[in-house]
Nucleic acid binder design. Structure first.
Length: 229
DNA sequence: AAATTACTCAACCGCGGGACT
DNA sequence: CAGTCCCGCGGTTGAGTAATT
């Protein structure tokens, strides 16, 4: 399966100019989102579809919030990351006006560096999807690594999943160890994007997945309780 | 004031998944 | 079922800026 994007010659790269933003914005307003692959030829923008989609999603889309993260947002990011790992789109989905890219950047620059210099909780990016995107890069609530508990994943070395955040590594000292629910109730509709309807069941599923559903007995139903809505 | 270093974050890249044919 | 296309995701890069020497 060849996935290489066709890259017509002469496509612009790099920072977007205000004129380009304007063109893209007008294009989306009249044609709607989607069909990014054809945006460049239809709008006259010399940009690839991916670039257009990213620009729209991260900057031009209505209700995008820029600027400093509030303490509440920081806290939520930390808590959600603890639960979900590097699933930035899921985390961003719970932060109104914030994009996955922004959350990811914020984590990497402001929050992750609070941990060890060990660059990242990295699972080899090529392996990550094979792991079914389970956030085992971070031990969930409870401290003990599910990897250790289950004898390792794909023979990964322990160093690779080294915990980088001391407040996670030492849960008893974690300021948020007794995590309640970082997720909101369905009633809190204003908290979510219009185009990302909040589905409690789905979120429960995500959390279930995040906590492991293979019956390894790491997390009892009691453990699950606080995060299930 | 100039040079260097550190930091931030916008954008790119490669990949996997799903829809469609 | 296999191939192709499009979309979206997470990791990484590098330009721009701020801080420091």
């Amino acid at each position: 399966m060849e996935k290489k994007e066709v890259k017509p010659a002469g496509l612009r790269k790099g920072l977007w100019k205000p004129e380009e933003d304007l063109i893209l914005k007008k294009y989306v307003e009249t044609n709607g989102e989607g069909n990014w692959a054809t945006v460049s030829e239809k709008s006259g923008l010399m940009r690839g579809g991916k670039s257009c989609r990213l620009r729209w999603k991260n900057y031009l889309r209505p209700n995008i919030k820029h600027g400093r993260m509030s303490d509440e947002e920081k806290d939520l990011i930390i808590r959600l990351h603890k639960l979900l790992g590097n699933r930035w789109s899921l985390i961003a989905g719970r932060l109104p006006g914030r994009t996955d890219n922004e959350v990811k950047n914020y984590w990497n620059t402001h929050l992750n560096k609070r941990g060890s210099p060990a660059k990242t909780i990295s699972i080899d990016s090529k392996k990550k999807k094979k792991l079914h995107q389970l956030p085992h890069s971070q031990p969930p609530v409870g401290g003990e690594s599910p990897v250790n508990a289950s004898g390792g994943l794909d023979g990964r070395k322990e160093e690779e999943i080294a915990v980088t955040c001391p407040w996670i590594a030492t849960p008893s000292k974690s300021f948020n160890y007794d995590i309640k629910s970082p997720l909101l109730t369905a009633n809190d509709a204003s908290f979510f994007y219009d185009d990302e309807p909040f589905i409690p069941i789905l979120d429960s599923f995500v959390l279930f997945e995040a906590f492991g559903s293979s019956g390894e007995g790491i997390y009892s139903p009691e453990d699950m309780q606080p995060v299930l809505l």
